[in-house]
Design a protein around this nucleic acid. Sequence first.
DNA 1: TTAGGGTTAG
Length: 537
Amino acid sequence: MYTEFNSMDNARYVFDQILDKTIFVWNAIIRGFALAGNGEEALSLYYRMNQIGIPSDRFTYTFALKALVVSSPSVSLIRKGKEIHGHILRHGFESYVHIVTTLIDMYARFGCVSYAGYVFVKMPERNVVSWSAIIACYAKNERPFEALQLFWEMMSETFDVIPNSVTMVSVLQACAALSALGQGKLLHCYVLRKGFDSTLSVMNSLVNMYLKCGSLENGRQIFDQMVKKDIVSWNSIIAGHAINGYGKEAVVLFRDMIRSGISPNIITFVSVLGACSHAGLVDEGKQIFDSMALLHKVVPSVEHYACMVDLLGRAGRLEEAAKVVEGMRIEPGPTVWGSLLGACRIHCNVELAERASIRLFQLEPVNAGNFVLLADIYAAAKMWEEVSKVKKLLEARNLQKVPGCSWIEVKRKIYSFVSIDELNPQMEQLHALLVHLSSEMKEKGYVPDTRVVLYELDQVEKERILLGHSEKLALAFGLINSGKGETIRITKNLRLCEDCHSVTKFISKFTNREILVRDVNRIHCFREGFCSCGDYW
DNA sequence: TTAGGGTTAG
């Protein structure tokens, strides 16, 4: 009873009074602490129980695994998880679906995707919950492609498991991550056929999927028709308008949300401030930031300060941005310094960039992206000696930049590209098309923006590297393999570079195509030589 | 009387 009311002091008091503690009593207290978020206490009780020789039953393991998941992060957690996994095997509990599903979820939350996959494959019996757990595992751990594959496998004749609303949420999340609009539409039909359209979480996931795929109209239509909307619905639609470049509309939606009686939370503010930032709405952003604590009782966190730094920095008000950092009431984290460094890159401010990176490198010594950002800034200023110093730092710390990767969905199949990929059978054809387009563009005034190439090479070599960027390869592939007039949709794992941005603008005009590129931050919609971001990204 | 999977941002 006390654990149900989250009154753990009382629960613990009663627990301590019980002289003859049955396994049920142990389970109840471990469960209570785990559910209350006190994983450490739950675990220490679990260990004590083991110590005094009380054997676990089929309920104990799930609570102990949950306790691990809610504990504050530490490297030893995975080891402890594997130990519990060992206990489960040694005591013959490996065929209990509940226990093994919890194991999958534990490995998923610790990012141990291959362990989760191994446990799943070894399961003697799987049901819709275990399938959902493994699909969610891939969807959440940046493996959306495998999540989709597993979903279709689950539906296949071999396994013939019927998905439920929870499964749909995860698989739609995978579609959103991939920007796989074709797959997403297919799933939308399935949702309608099976009547999942009365489940709020599924509808929220659909809205999110359409918006992440750059299909604002579809997402908006579903949202407008939803009878019941919760905080997730509103946050999704606001963030969705933001990434699609509709900053003003995102602010309008934010006001609608408040008017409809739903209180904004921390996520709402990250989204709406992000919207202001991308649309250059500095005054609105400042006003909303000031209203957070005053009007909405939401205390600004580091992320919100990072949004403000980004908002001001992007707009070129670097000194003001730096002042925000200085005046922060909480410790500025890596996101804040990172935003400042990003702004320095846009506005080529070497001095401030150096100041920001000193702090940033202390806080995040292993994030290669930060070093690359600084190198970028030096390269833009043609400070080649500094560029090579930063690169040596990277090498000395054995850090590697995340390789650029782009993918495209053509006829409901997904194709991925990394820069200069000899294994791709169409590579020669793709490169030839790009060389051809490039020379045509040059006649129309295109100048390759070689600043992003961080090597001291001659012009020809730099241009060759530029043409090998993964998004250009995906674009060429799309031009060759999709129908005339069809919109080309590309997704990239990093930020779109300046050269790819201007090339895509040219190509949208030349080929009279609409081209959508989603980079790590937002969606660019290229049409007739212009981009929806207004070159502000 | 105790059990498993899900949505929004960065």
